[in-house]
């Protein structure tokens, strides 16, 4: 009988752990494809109140070293996006610090101070540790769009058709981003 209860408890624990990890993986990953995406497209998406689109567009540019996109990502991570991205102050702090590491500004420094003042001692230590690794991998101080391209920015706001399997989002095979350049903060 006792053995049965222990087995049931172990099963319950493993299921809840699996659920928790599923929940974690449902968070959108910030990643960059090799394709060129204009930073302006992210600004346009944000102004059109399509923050999820803006998040993905900024991610694309931020990994290529665009400090403006890195700053915008910091703000999105700080406040979160309703129903899409949970607020994560540590990640927000990492992006804010990266954005201000080469091209500095008072605006970006103020955001760093605001984020750091809201973190606990442990979170600050975590931020320091992640930042050291991230800064070595992610460039900053660039502006990606040095060439003017006249384009219809609304094309970036079209929803991609996605295949949903349980709580995990899978991209269509032919839409799979090639030349992935991902840094996972978790």
């Amino acid at each position: 009988m006792k053995l049965g209860i222990v087995c049931l408890l172990a099963l319950f624990v493993s299921v809840s752990q699996a659920e928790a990890s599923n929940e974690e993986s449902s968070e959108p990953k910030c990643e960059s494809s090799g394709e060129f995406v204009s930073y302006k497209a992210g600004v346009y998406a944000e102004k059109s109140n399509k923050k999820a689109h803006a998040f993905n567009l900024y991610c694309n540019v931020a990994y290529k070293g665009d400090y403006r996109a890195q700053f915008k990502l910091a703000r999105l991570y700080l406040h979160g996006i309703d129903g899409y991205l949970s607020s994560n102050k540590v990640v927000a702090g990492v992006w804010a610090r990266i954005s201000n590491s080469v091209a500095r500004s008072v605006k970006r420094k103020n955001l760093i101070n605001q984020i750091e003042s809201e973190l606990s001692k442990d979170e600050l230590a975590e931020l320091n540790s992640i930042y050291t690794t991230a800064r070595a991998l992610i460039p900053s101080g660039n502006r990606i769009d040095h060439q003017y391209i006249k384009e219809d920015l609304s094309k970036y706001l079209k929803d991609e058709k996605r295949v949903y399997t349980g709580s995990r989002i899978k991209r269509k095979k032919d839409n799979a981003p090639n030349n992935l350049d991902t840094f996972d903060f978790n």
């Binding site: 930073y39 500004s105 040095h146 060439q147 003017y148």
Partner: peptide, 15 residues
């Protein structure tokens, strides 16, 4: 190709 370009954002110093 239009030369060297910059997207100037409002309220920012755009280098």
């Amino acid at each position: 190709n239009n030369g060297f370009c910059v997207y100037v954002e409002e309220g920012e110093l755009n280098y």
